[in-house]
Simulated assay, not measured.
Amino acid sequence: MKILLVDGTIIGRKTGAILEQVKGYIEDANPELELKILSLADFEHQFVDGRPLGEYNEDMQEMVRRFENADGYIIATPIFQGSIPGVLKNAFDMLHPRTMRYKPVSIVANGGTYQHHLVIENQLKPILDYFRCLVTPNYVYTHTSHFDETNSITNEDVHERLRELARVFVQYAEMSKHLSKETIDTP
């Protein structure tokens, strides 16, 4: 199975650090999964405005192809101004509604206040529900205080929650193999 680990921002280092840590824990839980990181910072973004996919630049088309070819996702996002980054929402807006259907998704996020975890519940989960993803029930939210000056996670409770997230994600990935997969060409 191909798992896409999405670094949902174009600035900062903490989100990528969390994603790398989760990647290691998933590899420990199931080394047979093919894990690829997609960093939104590596793409030239255009605003999604409803035109056909072929009218966007090659980077935008490649990003969509990577989402379409994946069998599951880890979505990593910072929380800015009480919301997910616009670049992440823009990426979701590029996707056909069936692209992520019945595929497992886990969420990791970081922010500067402890209340920002509510953004996951109030913004990100509804978007993933729209796509009909298999969202694992255990997301991990980290706070700035959980990192050292090199952006390494220093909080052991966070490590334990990330290991648990990886374990549950692997189970959801296994379960998703047996669900009907509708192609994005199906009306």
Rank of each mutant, 00 (worst) to 15 (best):
M1Y: 02
Y56V: 03
R167Y: 07
L128G: 03
N57D: 07
F131S: 05
D7M: 11
S152C: 03
F131R: 09
M1R: 05
N57E: 02
P104S: 12
K23V: 02
E121H: 00
F131K: 05
G50T: 08
P187E: 15
T9G: 10
K103E: 05
R163W: 02
V6S: 10
H116R: 05
E32W: 05
S145I: 13
R163T: 07
V170N: 11
T186N: 12
R163L: 05
I120M: 04
H143K: 07
L5R: 01
F80G: 00
G86L: 08
K14S: 05
R65K: 15
M60N: 05
I79K: 05
V87R: 04
I74W: 02
L53W: 01
C133D: 07
H45C: 09
F43A: 02
G8F: 12
V64H: 07
T144P: 00
G112S: 14
K2E: 15
G86H: 09
N90W: 01
E62M: 13
G82H: 11
L124F: 04
H178C: 00
D148I: 10
R161W: 03
V108E: 01
V170D: 10
L134S: 00
I3K: 10
T142F: 03
G112E: 10
I37D: 00
Y102I: 01
I75K: 00
E182K: 11
E27M: 11
V158G: 00
L128Q: 13
T144E: 14
F147I: 13
R98Q: 12
F67R: 06
T186L: 15
V140C: 13
E27H: 04
E121K: 06
G16R: 14
Q171T: 13
L165C: 12
D185Q: 08
K177P: 00
A29E: 15
S106C: 10
P31A: 11
E34H: 09
R65P: 00
L33H: 08
G12E: 12
D93Y: 09
I79E: 04
F80V: 11
M1I: 02
H45L: 14
L88K: 04
H96C: 08
A41H: 08
L53I: 05
T99L: 12
G112Q: 09
F47H: 12
R163K: 15
E20H: 06
P97M: 13
R101W: 01
Q21A: 15
Q81M: 14
S83A: 14
E58V: 04
E44R: 14
D129N: 14
T99K: 04
G72I: 06
L128M: 09
I11G: 12
E121N: 14
I79G: 06
N30V: 04
N110A: 14
G8H: 06
